[in-house]
């Protein structure tokens, strides 16, 4: 059964905020775990959240991660938000 978008969105936002003190970037598998969904189902939700600007990609070049938009030191340190 397809996941409900609004419900899943709240789950992810809640899940990431809960951990926001210790980290700001998460692997895709962390998000799939929060949703308790198969990767392909989770990807649809995550992609929509990216398109809506709720989540943002972070990439080291070799590995990609996800974070709530604007969260974490990285963006401040890069002067991206100034």
């Amino acid at each position: 059964m397809a996941l409900d978008y609004e419900e899943s969105k709240q789950k992810i936002i809640g899940g990431l905020q809960k951990k926001s003190k210790s980290k700001s970037k998460f692997y895709f598998s962390d998000l799939a775990k929060i949703l308790d969904a198969k990767p392909r189902e989770a990807k649809k939700i995550v992609t929509q959240m990216i398109n809506e600007g709720i989540l943002e990609f972070w990439s080291s070049g070799s590995t990609s991660m996800y974070g709530l938009k604007g969260a974490g030191k990285q963006s401040a340190a890069e002067h991206e938000n100034e």
């Binding site: 990216i50 398109n51 943002e56 990609f57 972070w58 990439s59 080291s60 070049g61 990609s64 974070g67 990285q74 963006s75 890069e78 991206e80």
Partner: peptide
């Protein structure tokens, strides 16, 4: 320093942040 949130909208790859 490498890595970052740079990229083009909707794409999670293709751009690698270097500072």
């Amino acid at each position: 320093k490498h890595g970052g949130i740079v990229g083009v909208f909707g794409y999670g790859g293709g751009v690698i942040g270097r500072y």
